[in-house]
Amino acid sequence: MAEFLSLHDAVARYVEDGATVAMEGFTHLIPFAAGHEVIRQRKRDLTLIRMTPDLVYDQLIGAGCAKKLIFSWGGNPGVGSLHRLRDAVEKGWPHKVEIFEHSHAAMACAFEAGAAGLPLAVLRGYVGSELPSVNHQIKYIECPFTGERLAAVPSVRPDVSLVHAQKADRKGNVLVEGIIGVQKEAILAADKSIVTVEEVVDDLGASPNACVIPGWAIDAIAVAEKGAYPSYAHGYYPRDNRFYKEWDAIARDRDTFQVWIDDNVYNAGGQAQ
């Protein structure tokens, strides 16, 4: 049963140094507040998983939290590169980050397989791509029924997943609306899960087929108002496209990045300004 905790206490209890952590959000509902809390608590040696690592992963990597990154598209959407990720991969600053690179299809399948309790995901993927030559996690199997050669990747089974959602009710049941990405799969695939929400309500008001994650499938709920900012929360606030553009200049330089992280994460209560 989901326990209502402060974000500080949820991260302190469930995110351990060296853990495999998925903070999901497919360009929507990105758990910035949770990511910043992980940075503030100076978690180290994390294996970070996410299909579309963007600014918050750039911040985690630049702050030295990550040892390994499993991903399928790492960029600043509509803007360009993630300079902290690039600096880590190209120059080893603040230290080298090992990368395991996939395609979206494979990672989406891997999350789904993790949620389904399977050890692997099977897909018709990577045909002719050179990604399998640089990522030993991509292998092939033969379909026992048709003989077709199919790609196989290990399922995603994070130690802990952190996602952001619009709202929870008082029993900790969570409603996710809009672009739902792999949020549900991330929660169900993980050993422990933390969901940050904009607000807690008496009644979710969900339609019968809405994306509702039951409270008994979640470990901790933390209220984090504007917890996805500068990304957006459908029905609550829009994406701050200007900040995404500004991030390009902030992250390009190690010193400006350091100043930003000090001002907005280490010395700030909880959210990006």
Binding site: T52, W73, G74, R86, E101, H102, S103, H104, G125
Partner: peptide, 17 residues
């Protein structure tokens, strides 16, 4: 790498499926 680009995203399977 000289320049690290964002990666494959959806393209590898879009191109084949």
């Amino acid at each position: 790498p000289k320049v690290r680009l964002p990666g494959g995203g959806g393209a590898p399977e879009i191109a084949t499926c």
